[in-house]
Amino acid sequence: MSKLAERAAPAGSQEVAEGYRAGRTLPVRVELVRQLKRRRTLLVGGVLFALPFVLLVAFRIGGDPEGAGNQVSLMDSATASAANFAAVNLFASAGFLLVVPVALFFGDTVASEASWSSLRYLLAAPVPRARLLWSKLVVALALSLAAIVLLPLVALAVGTVAYGWGPLELPTGGSLSGGVAAERLAITVAYVLVSQLVTAALAFYLSTRTDAPLGAVGGAVGLTIIGNVLDEVTALGDWRDFLPAHWQYAWLDAVRPELDWTRLIQGTSLSVTYALVLFALAFRGFARKDVVS
């Protein structure tokens, strides 16, 4: 086995150079710059930036949305104000569109290094395995947060120009003032991020197990879709409460006259629990993995 491969092998006791500090290897800012320069990051940002404009054009062409019969949904009030327009953008994208960038940022991060045959060189630098994963995990989380925040911010700007700033008109009747609406939208964005943690953890775990980035990203997206399908099977009854997909729209409780934290807390607890388990498995498995790529 070459010296390079020996360094990339599972950690053992090794002599290190004087002045070496494990905590200084692969700084988060360096990894962040690397990921920001990648085309997939720019592409994701472009798609999320463009979505509010696409919806704006759709409403301009199709006219104001109307409810079916006597039923009124959040979508029906999309053009009432900038806050409504931002809420509709989140509603339209939370189920699937936002799943893709989260899976991409977490699933591509380690597997791409393996596919480029650069992973063993990072470990031979030497970058400790736990340090490498932590840096990539923090950057993936930061990029996911930026993606999820970018969409409502652009939607608010576009909605303000197109429909003006005003209260959040609720589909159940009544409205929330601008300040309260901003707070509720912030809660919504935070919950959407938390609800995506299971997909993120799945993608990150798969990224440490495979050398194929597409396999990690596709696997996480596929399992998320399966979860959404299972949640539609009413025959499962209370078993659906253990599916993260069952709580993905719990943030709708934040756009009601009285904020109800019950479903938000339940969904957060489930997502965080699953995510912590999967992240722990990723670190444990990668620490013992024989890295040859």
Rank of each mutant, 00 (worst) to 15 (best):
Arg263Ser: 05
Gly159Trp: 15
Gly174Gln: 11
Tyr163Cys: 03
Leu236Glu: 04
Ala200Val: 07
Leu236Ala: 04
Asp211Cys: 00
Thr210His: 11
Val189Ala: 12
Trp247Gly: 09
Glu169Tyr: 09
Thr172Tyr: 04
Leu223Arg: 02
Asp238Gln: 12
Trp251Ile: 00
Phe242Cys: 01
Leu236Ser: 02
Val217Asp: 07
Trp247Thr: 11
Leu185Trp: 13
Phe204Ala: 05
Ala212Glu: 13
Arg184His: 11
Ala190Lys: 05
Leu223Trp: 06
Leu259Asp: 07
Leu243Trp: 03
Ala235Cys: 03
Arg184Met: 05
Ala157Asn: 01
Gln248Trp: 11
Trp165His: 11
Asp241Met: 12
Trp261Gln: 00
Val161Leu: 07
Glu258Pro: 03
Leu206Ile: 12
Gly164Leu: 09
Leu197Thr: 14
Asp253Gly: 09
Thr160Val: 01
Ala157Ser: 02
Ile226Phe: 12
Ala203Glu: 12
Leu230Met: 10
Ala216Thr: 08
Val158Asn: 02
Val221Tyr: 08
Leu214Cys: 01
Ala181Met: 02
Tyr205Gln: 10
Asp231Glu: 14
Pro244Gln: 06
Tyr191Lys: 10
Ser175His: 15
Ala157Gly: 08
Val194Ala: 08
Ser175Gln: 15
Leu243Val: 03
Leu176Ser: 10
Thr160His: 13
Gly237Val: 00
Gly178Ala: 13
Arg209Val: 02
Val194Tyr: 04
Pro167Asp: 13
Pro171Thr: 13
Ile225Met: 12
Gly179His: 09
Val198Arg: 00
Leu223Ser: 06
Thr199Glu: 01
Gln248Ala: 11
Leu193Thr: 03
Trp247Asp: 08
Trp251Lys: 01
Leu243Ala: 01
Tyr191Ile: 09
Val158His: 02
Gly215Ser: 10
His246Asp: 00
Asp238Gly: 01
Ala212Val: 14
Asp260Glu: 11
Leu223His: 05
Arg240Pro: 09
Ala157Asp: 01
Val217Pro: 05
Arg240Thr: 07
Val233Ser: 03
Ala200Ser: 03
Ala155Gly: 13
Thr210Met: 05
Leu193Asp: 00
Ala245Lys: 08
Ile226Leu: 15
Gly215Asn: 08
Val189His: 10
Asp238Tyr: 08
Ser207Gln: 10
Ser177Met: 08
Ser195Tyr: 09
Phe242Met: 07
Gly219Cys: 04
Ala254Cys: 09
Phe204Met: 03
Asn228Val: 02
Arg256Glu: 15
Pro171Ser: 10
Val192Asp: 14
Ala254Lys: 11
Asp211Ile: 00
Ala182Lys: 12
Phe242Glu: 01
Thr172Met: 11
Ala203Ile: 06
Gly218Tyr: 08
Gln248Glu: 14
Gly166Pro: 03
Leu259Glu: 07
Gly219Asn: 06
Pro257Thr: 14
Leu223Gln: 06
Leu230Ala: 10
His246Cys: 00
Tyr191His: 14
Glu258Cys: 02
Trp165Ser: 11
Gly218Ala: 11
Pro171Cys: 08
Val221Gln: 08
Pro257His: 11
Gly215Pro: 03
Val194Arg: 04
Trp165Arg: 15
Gly178Val: 15
Asp211Pro: 00
Leu185Gln: 14
Ala201Glu: 12
Phe204Ser: 06
Asp238Thr: 13
Gly222His: 01
Pro213Leu: 06
Gly215Phe: 12
Ala203His: 08
Ala155Trp: 15
